[in-house]
Design a binder for these strands. Sequence first.
RNA 1: GGCGGCGUAGCCAAGUGGUAAGGCAGAGGUCUGCAAAACCUUUAUUCAGCGGUUCAAAUCCGCUCGCCGCCUCCA
Length: 493
Amino acid sequence: MGLRVYNTLSGNKEEFIPVEPGKVKMYVCGVTVYDHCHIGHARANVVFDVIYRYLGHLGLQVTYVRNYTDIDDKIINRANREGVTFDVISERFIKEFDRDMERLGLKLPTCQPRATEHIPEIISLVQTLIDKGFAYQAGGDVNFCVEKFDSYLKLSGRSLEDMQAGARIEVDERKRHPMDFALWKEAKPGEPFWESPWGKGRPGWHIECSAMSMKYLGTTFDIHGGGKDLIFPHHENEIAQSEAATGKPFVNYWLHNGFVNINSEKMSKSLGNFFTIKEVLDKYDNEVLRFFLLSAHYRSPIDFSDQNLSEAEAGLERIYKALAAVEEALGGAEFAGAALDAATLGEAERELFEKATTLVTRFHEAMDDDFNTALAIAHVFDLVRCVNRVLSETAEGKDRIGTLCALVKGEVAKIAGVLGVFSSEPVGFLERLKSRKAGNLDIAVEEIELLIAERTAARKAKDFKRSDEIRDQLAARNIVLLDSPQGTTWSVK
RNA sequence: GGCGGCGUAGCCAAGUGGUAAGGCAGAGGUCUGCAAAACCUUUAUUCAGCGGUUCAAAUCCGCUCGCCGCCUCCA
């Protein structure tokens, strides 16, 4: 059974069949660069990054285009507020966006076009729509005529009549139909502009995506993605513009990710309940955020809260602890390809062998079912339990344990490369987490270590009263001690 | 008002016809001087409620209740 994806257009999961066998062309709406990105942007971009990686992992040759909307009312407004030109704002936030995405571990798309670098293509597309009678000039504006496009609203499943019933429509005298939308906007005095057949102006919001996606991916391509909130009007309008211009289907599969909620409510700028990626990464590790975002199915809403992030952190830590133990049992040796005779394995070892060798298969089953990353992650936890069991039952490293561990390491690495988590060096990751937590402590690391030394001496002298005193004292400050034959280590609660 | 989605254990979360994954938290046990970590066992006779279809439903259909989203810029 191959890949199946939920297509917003049909409202069903469908078998994924690319236009051109072996190749996938995918476009995802990027950001309007007028402010810092929030975790809603993080989710959308992480989700499509995983989809991008998975398609590549399946052996498909993926062309992934993600745009920057670098000209828009909001950018102009901010530029005016700050007394700079619009490109100062867009450049600044493009850099911010790039940095945020890098921290979240995103692979670079094949191409990241900007609206302002495609003005000729946009003008040409608008002209085609006018020529074909789908658009009309109104002063210096050019509007798309929704009534001319029969299948308008097929993506969101509405009708023009229904839309009007409850909507308060501001009357724009120059629009023939209240739902008509701008392809080209006349420049007001002082606004940035480009020359066009209709005078000085700039592109409307939706046209750039049609122009750029078709330029890089062709008139009909495979996947178009974005947040659910883009379904209407943005994607609806993209379909109208593109299909009216070419007379061909624009996109075969529309994929939309769910929202990030705060207390079960949509996070948005207008509600003021948003967190920027930066703020979140000040508090949590990059990989913890990514792991959290992948712990639910991409179409479900996900609730952002301290508790949920902390749980994600605990879960990821558990996985890395197991990976660190695997690394240790391996003793630095590489997998020699030594054959494991299942008959000689103990029960726990056999289960581990089984879970490890089927991990990638189960991962594919999960991902083939509309990119079920939550299930994929559950399979990893499954394996972790088996690893821990085998290692806790085995006093010292035997050859076959090393071989098993090498197997586990290799199989986990395969899926880590797709999910973009679990690929840090385990001990390094755990140290990173520890020092991050230690940064929030009200006690210096040196002091902790002095106390541990004192406690070790006390324990040696069997002065358990004093040793427990020290442990309690540290526990009160969120420090947990772990005694082992190799000595005492500490971690932050 | 129109359209759409959701409601699974204390919490998070998979599961779309075959008898409830996984994680966090909790309880008991092993280990330990005692702990911690890890492991083992355990925690939903039940999937918002009520009906219906079926040999069989969390899964399909209908109704009710509750929550949310879109219809205006928004990932």
